[in-house]
Design a protein around this nucleic acid. Structure first.
Length: 576
DNA sequence: GCCGTTTTCGGCCCGACTGTTTTCAGTCG
């Protein structure tokens, strides 16, 4: 069993304990252990198997959870968990995703009405039976129904990072069957969309048919939806992501990549352009209409070139002006991962990160960065042990000292400072002024009226220390909608105040999203692509997602603060 | 259930909001 799965089971147990009304501190211990195990560099199974090793060395794992882990490894479950699962069906856990209902409410609903699924919950609300329970009423019924509708809209979609992970698992596995010339993802994963509905993989070469065979036998494939000579569709993993693998002739690879990368709207435009030129485009190639002669198809570049277009990067293929730009030779020279020289948003053990400043710096140095900013939370995030004025100033001093030791990378002292409800900074201005760079972010009161939220952000931009507006929309993909506000007004104010807009590369956020980046760029905005890392490994994992999101916003390296070499970067963040 | 230079018991994060409501439990961030 992998650490991730162990962590999932412990977290699920914690949820069940919460519904069962167990002691809150005990529940937290399970959650702590789950997240410690998830981020632990060694496999728990290996530690359990080792003679002289103890799982209690993992911080957060004590005697009793260690016993659970042993049992879990031997039997696939443990007694305490089985006892809870005997009390409550596992489908109950899904109800925790519905806003307005917590563990107490769920337990009550289950006791009274045996409600265990979303469908049953919906029925109870529609029949106005929820309001008959103690401390529940009509408003809650309404809220729950609305939340169910939102929840259903999200299901069936997956984070971009999840699609990438599945592709990274499947591609080497399929390549092992041998005889493949090319294998690559297409579809929304290739376009870098923030969420994906399914995953398309294309393969060419003499071994492609054998790869289809191997594909449907993958241990994580639990449902084969169809399999023919050229294509197989499966549901993959417990999450049930649909994955399609297509086997193709090499001469069609470019045309098929073009076809399956989409978007649909982009392809309609490209195909109608082909028709205008007396050509027809499908997944097998580009052909002349009159004599069906093949004009192109082996590479995408050839296909676009034959249509008189420069090759269009997949991230731009959304029917938002990219064809015109390609025709007129004014496609942007999009930013690349290699352009990034630093990372300006990360957390350490000081607050809710999982590593020390030195460990984060070492990981950043290994990525070839010239600089990073450490930006722990401010005191409003009490749950994260946020920094007050004194700790923030002490930290700035500590960083100045550290830089004298020469870590091989320049550290800037920073802070992710909370924007309070009224738009004021969470820490006093003189404390903020001690820091090299302040990222200002909203973490609370997200349901203000749009006008109030706009005023709040406008006021936050007034603070002279603020250099970056962190995750500007507050969205959590598949989880929480962005808070509504007048984005253009805020972006224009950010331009005026010389504040950079963050493109947060954390896969749950990808905030700003591509379309808003483009809007802001048109207003003259500049950006910072950051990872919001809470663990050294996030630095390398999240940055590519940030960069691909920036590319979806048509950004070039010169639009992005952290592409600057150290000396210029330092000048750029200096307070005027 | 975990932890520990205040160390084997007693603390562990906590304030704001909502409406279930008129004094506070449940939920959220």
């Amino acid at each position: 069993m992998e650490n991730r799965e162990i962590a999932r089971i412990l977290a699920e147990t914690a949820d069940l304990m919460e519904i069962a009304g167990e002691d809150g501190f005990r529940i937290r211990s399970y959650r702590n252990a789950a997240s410690a195990i998830e981020g632990y560099p060694e496999r728990v199974e290996d530690i359990l198997a080792g003679e002289d090793r103890k799982v209690t060395d993992i911080p957060g794992v004590g005697k009793s959870i260690a016993a659970h882990l042993g049992e879990l490894s031997r039997t696939g479950s443990f007694e305490k968990r089985d006892a809870l699962l005997a009390l409550y069906p596992p489908t109950l856990l899904e109800l925790l995703r519905i806003q307005g209902l917590g563990p107490k409410g769920i337990a009550l609903l289950y006791q009274h009405y045996k409600v265990a699924t979303i469908d049953e919950l919906e029925r109870i609300c529609k029949e106005q039976k929820l309001r008959e329970l103690p401390r529940m009423g009509a408003k809650l019924e309404e809220k729950v129904l609305k939340s169910i509708a939102q929840y259903r809209q999200r299901t069936g979609r997956f984070l971009l990072s999840f699609g990438k992970k599945v592709a990274d698992e499947l591609i080497p596995y399929l390549a092992e069957s041998g005889g493949l010339e090319q294998i690559a993802p297409a579809g929304s994963l290739r376009r870098g969309k923030d969420t994906i509905g399914d995953l398309d993989l294309l393969a060419t070469g003499p071994g492609a048919a054998a790869a289809l065979e191997r594909f449907v036998k993958h241990p994580k494939v639990h449902n084969v939806l169809g399999k023919g000579e050229n294509k197989a569709s499966v549901q993959y993993g417990l999450e049930g992501l649909q994955v399609d693998l297509r086997a193709l002739a090499g001469e069609s690879y470019g045309a098929a990549m073009q076809y399956f990368t989409g978007s649909k709207e982009h392809n309609i435009l490209v195909r109608s352009r082909a028709l205008k030129l007396g050509l027809t485009l499908n997944e097998y190639g580009l052909f002349r209409v009159d004599n069906e002669q093949r004009v192109a198809g082996e590479t995408e570049e050839q296909v676009y070139a034959a249509l008189g277009l420069a090759w269009i990067p997949p991230e731009l293929r959304e029917n938002s002006g990219e064809i015109e730009a390609a025709l007129e030779g004014r496609l942007p020279k999009l930013i690349d991962l290699a352009d990034i020289r630093g990372d300006l948003h990360m957390h350490t053990l000081e607050t809710d990160g999982r590593a020390t400043l030195e460990e984060m710096a070492e990981a950043a140095r290994a990525l070839g960065y010239q600089y990073i900013a450490i930006t722990d939370h401010s005191k409003a995030l009490a749950m994260a042990n946020g920094l007050d004025e004194k700790r923030a100033v002490d930290f700035a001093r500590q960083v100045r000292k550290i830089n004298q030791d020469g870590l091989g990378i320049r550290i800037f002292s920073g802070l992710e400072c909370d924007i309070r409800r009224d738009g004021a900074m969470d820490l006093a201005g003189d404390a903020l002024a001690e820091l090299d760079i302040v990222v200002a972010s909203v973490h609370s009161h997200m349901n203000l009226e749009p006008a109030e939220m706009t005023d709040r952000l406008m006021r936050a931009l007034e603070s002279p220390s603020v250099r970056v507006l962190g995750h500007p929309t507050g969205r959590l993909l598949l989880n929480r909608d962005p808070y509504p506000f007048d984005f253009e007004r805020v972006a224009a104010e950010a331009v005026r105040r010389n504040v950079y807009l963050e493109i947060n590369g954390s896969p749950e956020r990808l905030d700003l999203p591509g379309a808003m980046i483009r809007t802001a760029k048109a207003l003259g905005a500049k950006f910072a692509i950051n990872t919001d890392s809470h663990h050294p490994k996030h630095l390398g994992i999240n940055m590519p997602f940030g960069v691909i999101t920036a590319r979806r916003g048509w950004l070039e390296a010169r639009d992005v603060l952290n592409t600057l070499p150290l000396a210029e970067f330092e000048k750029a963040i200096r307070k005027s």
